[in-house]
Write a protein that binds this DNA or RNA. Structure first.
Lengths: 138, 138
DNA sequence: CTGTATCCTTAGGGATACTG
DNA sequence: CAGTATCCCTAAGGATACAG
């Protein structure tokens, strides 16, 4: 099946969500941008899972065209860009937190919680608000 | 990328979730079983999106092996089976509801809410409890 | 009805080279 | 650094036939 977009596939909320992040790489990119502060192309490229560069570029374009990411010139570095979440993207955080909570409960193989989990556990709501505040001031 | 399973891919809650339902068809099957009371093979097969039979069979096996579905003999019909959600699956409902709420807000193309959305809107929490009650008595 | 099995096509995606 | 372009391969997935 070709990857659906929201213009192919709407009218049902689950289908709509599936069109935007219903594939493994998009979910991981959203994780990186929402919870790991990834900003630059290389940050995503160097994530643990090892996405390849062509796939990363395609997914970033897709997420940008779906209104999830903004691509901005990096004021500090001439030729660099930074990717930031849109409001639409940030508002996915509650859903992501529910998913995280569910996975933590059911993944028996997790073993020691990663730093990532530990940080989010500290205070989920405060964490979400901090992210949204970062957005407001940008 | 070959479809990952939770045994390939754990240690991160988002990755774990992506391995289970991080593809379009699995999300839609979960929708059908959690919110549309689909029970029989044909119910899934005849869903609006038109999944093909080989893909459906593969996804049902995958979801069953991940502990999301139980396949039971249908007491009322000799050769038929019914698919029912496990507890693990039902506990995904809060996350699904968050996703639905998010999609309803951001999908500008939805137009008139479907019966599906309307029913869930009635009372999300009561709806979820009803589903869980159905499970308990089964 | 509930699937399996098979054929076939295409898109997803890995590796890598290359460009501004 | 931040991508784009190619090559190539595999697996996802559509269509359809068939079996219990």
């Amino acid at each position: 099946m070709a990857k659906k977009t929201t213009s192919d596939w709407h009218g049902c909320p689950i289908r709509y969500a599936a069109a935007i992040f219903g594939d493994e790489w998009s979910m991981l990119i959203l994780r990186d941008i929402l919870f790991k502060y990834c900003k630059h192309y290389a940050d995503f490229l160097n994530a643990e899972e090892g996405i390849s560069t062509n796939i990363l570029a395609a997914r970033l374009h897709s997420l940008e065209s779906e209104g999830m990411l903004r691509k901005l010139a990096d004021p500090e570095h001439g030729a660099r860009y930074i990717y930031r979440p849109t409001k639409k993207c940030l508002e996915l955080i509650p859903a992501m937190l529910e998913i995280i909570e569910w996975s933590e409960k059911w993944d028996e193989n997790t073993g020691v919680p990663s730093e990532f989990i530990a940080e989010i556990r500290l205070d989920r709501i405060a964490f979400a608000k901090r992210l949204i505040a970062q957005f407001e001031e940008s």
